[in-house]
Design a binder for these strands. Structure first.
Lengths: 239, 239
DNA sequence: CGATTACTTGAACCGCTTCAAGTATCGTGG
DNA sequence: CCACGATACTTGAAGCGGTTCAAGTAATCG
């Protein structure tokens, strides 16, 4: 079974085959989105949640002056808007940053799961807690790290998260985002994103050729980023 | 019953008296912390979670250069480190920003709740989802708002959150934080926090005299902040 | 009353933004 | 197969929001 959600969950705790089957069967339909298409609109009230199976998606908000801030980046296996199950109203939109394939669960199904499968429920809860943990790490980075350190941190984080779902080759991964989109992730200008990436290249920490990011010197990158993967919760233990 | 956690939960959904009793009885002990004391240490593995009953607390991380970033501010009724129940290891510390009173639940009790009380479990899950929602709003503010707008947003948010737990008088609330602590919340310098507050004062939007913050012109403050309370999830509905 | 902590102000500096232009890449139609 | 347009990336230079350093004032407390 290569369901990327299961890959993610099984890193954090044992999931029995029965549980896995129940979980997989909860998803009723698949959907495809083109790049730049809205998956969930701001202020909408979805009655289902979506799991990202393939591609990159982002949670975002547009401000009055037209600027956009992306508050989360999702990779395959991320249960993107599981929040909506209990929050009901979406304060932020979700956009496909690349072409995306998604799997859909009805909220009513999730509610039934929460009544009958306490361990699975805790694991889904955990999934949203890890989201929150990543948010906090981003807040720290935005508040107290300079552009180079933040970029290094972002590359480290994506490397680890993509590795969990087998989207990494050696020290490289595909990151099909434009510098303009990355600027919206960092809350920086496109120009400064460009110079920041060049700075990391010049130091020999990474290569970034088109879609492919290659980490040439992990130790240096992690040092620049002060990267510590605790917040990604990578240990398997009973939960 | 004036338990501030129940006040918060009952804003979002009905909680039966039975459920309320079960919840209240889950807390076994109270603890008191002095200002600046660590409630939860970074990288620790607590076996209980704590509910903030009185005071202000903050989640934080210290970086290698000694700077501190506060990633969340907690008010009475916040179930501060409910995360720890499933995340196990704390990537961030929690500090008492003022003297604090806390109520304690063992993780084993929470696990039992999750096996027997699906609705309460969903409500606790929701509590952590609202935390995440606030994180995302902070990320947007840090990325794309200037200092005045962020300060205005922070004041609006605290006003609403404190009102939910009866810590507001008319248009005023106590905020016993130093400008230096606020600088660590904003990831700004103390000097700029000072000038930003003065700017809001000069515009007549707020007064900020010692501990007391008074909102003199909510409309103006909310406009500066582009404040929209959707992310605080203030509607009561079945969850 | 003196020490400590919080708040305030001024001025030089710097990281990042903005504006403007130029280059590389890629898909598409003639 | 090349010309063209569109999009992404790159570079330069001026400007600004926020930092840093330094000092001074107000409030609090033993």
């Amino acid at each position: 079974m290569n369901d990327p959600l299961l890959l993610q969950l099984r890193i954090r705790d044992k999931i029995s085959d029965e549980e896995a089957e129940i979980l997989v069967k909860s998803f009723t339909a698949q959907r495809y989105y083109a790049a730049d298409q809205d998956i969930v609109a701001q202020d909408s009230r979805p009655t289902s949640s979506q799991l990202l199976m393939e591609g990159f998606a982002g949670r975002y908000k547009i401000l009055a002056d037209g600027s956009r801030q992306i508050s989360a980046v999702h990779v395959p296996g991320d249960f993107m808007d599981l929040h909506g199950f209990l929050l009901k109203e979406m304060a932020h939109g979700v956009v496909a940053l690349t072409p995306c394939r998604l799997a859909l669960v009805e909220h009513s199904t999730l509610k039934r799961l929460s009544e009958t499968q306490p361990h699975l429920t805790r694991m889904l809860w955990l999934d949203t807690l890890i989201d929150g943990s990543i948010h906090r790490e981003w807040i720290v980075a935005m508040g107290r790290r300079d552009a180079v350190s933040r970029m290094a941190h972002f590359v480290c984080e994506l490397y680890v998260r993509l590795k969990l779902v087998n989207r990494v080759e050696e020290t490289s991964f595909r990151l099909p985002l434009t510098q303009s989109e990355i600027a919206d992730i960092f809350g920086m200008s496109l120009v400064h994103v460009n110079r920041t990436i060049q700075s990391l290249r010049r130091e020999g920490a990474i290569r970034w050729e088109g879609d492919m990011v290659t980490i040439d010197n992990w130790a240096q990158l992690a040092r620049l980023a002060e990267f510590d993967d605790t917040y990604l919760c990578l240990n398997s233990e009973p939960r």
